[in-house]
Computed example of a mutant assay.
Amino acid sequence: MKTILLSTGEAKEMNFEEVKKQFEPMLFKHMKVANDKFVFNKVEEEDFMQELQIELWRAYEQYEPSAGNCFTTYLHYKLQKGVRNATFSRYSLKNRNNGLVSMNATRGDDDLKLEDMFASDENTSDHITYNELTAIIRRNVSEAEEDALISLLNKDEFSVNDYAAKHNITRQAANQRIVKLRNKLRSIIAQEYLEIV
């Protein structure tokens, strides 16, 4: 038996089976949200739940009520790790080479290269301009992501550590947010303007 602080403020003595029964809906919610991102290639629910139940067990074992945090807060971060473990294989091929594509690699059937799409003359209006890229970025960055964008574009003036301190999070969490934004913008620019599929 272990003391579990509930979000209602109640402290309750619970064994693992009771915790599992009470918090199973939270596991299903995390699984559903993550699996809904995949149109065709969803993670098998039984495998997914097994990962999340492992993290539930770890949360139960490592939880310290004396820290003053309610169990759901602690469990949330453990479940994020479980989601990452369960879905990693779906992203691993996509993330090979970190999404980088050589400028002189041909794309598609017509031997078009990325370098061919950039202007050699600064005044050429047929190519992507600085203002167009800025407009794309601004249109796709939410207010909550603005600090991450500043850090992404100007690390000397606003480093990852500065971002972490401002938002009162760990450096690792700050870096994850910045990388997430970078990948999001890379994908948007590639799809909308470079037409890379």
Rank of each mutant, 00 (worst) to 15 (best):
Q191W: 08
A135K: 08
G82F: 02
F23T: 01
K166G: 06
Y74W: 08
E146I: 07
V43Y: 00
Q80Y: 12
K180C: 04
N97M: 08
L152C: 05
G99H: 04
D126I: 03
L79Q: 04
S120V: 15
S125V: 09
I178H: 04
E115G: 08
P25Y: 06
S66L: 13
E13R: 04
F158K: 11
Y77Q: 09
M49S: 04
A86I: 05
M26Y: 08
Q22M: 12
A190P: 09
A148M: 02
T106L: 04
T3P: 05
N41W: 03
N123C: 13
L52D: 02
E145P: 02
E122W: 08
L79V: 07
E46G: 07
A105T: 07
N154D: 10
L5W: 01
E44F: 03
R186Q: 14
Q176Y: 12
N123S: 11
N183D: 11
D121Y: 13
R139Q: 13
I128R: 01
F71G: 03
D156R: 11
G68T: 05
F158Y: 14
N175P: 00
K155C: 09
G99K: 06
D109R: 10
E44I: 03
S159E: 02
E122K: 14
Y130F: 11
K21I: 06
I196A: 07
V179H: 06
N97P: 03
A173K: 06
G68W: 03
R139T: 12
F48C: 03
E24Q: 08
E24L: 12
K180S: 11
A165E: 15
T72A: 14
E192C: 05
R182S: 06
R107P: 05
Q172A: 15
T73V: 00
M103A: 13
E132Y: 13
N98R: 03
L133C: 06
S159Q: 09
N69Y: 08
L112S: 14
R138M: 04
E192A: 07
L153W: 10
C70V: 14
N35H: 01
E55V: 00
I136G: 01
N98H: 07
E146V: 10
R138F: 07
K32Q: 08
K113H: 01
K180N: 10
N104I: 14
L5V: 09
M103P: 15
D111M: 12
M117A: 07
K20T: 08
E64A: 11
T170K: 01
Q176T: 12
M1P: 09
G108H: 00
N41I: 05
T106C: 05
Y63W: 05
K37I: 04
V33M: 14
N131E: 15
S142H: 01
K20R: 09
E46D: 10
N15C: 10
I196T: 06
T87D: 00
E61Q: 11
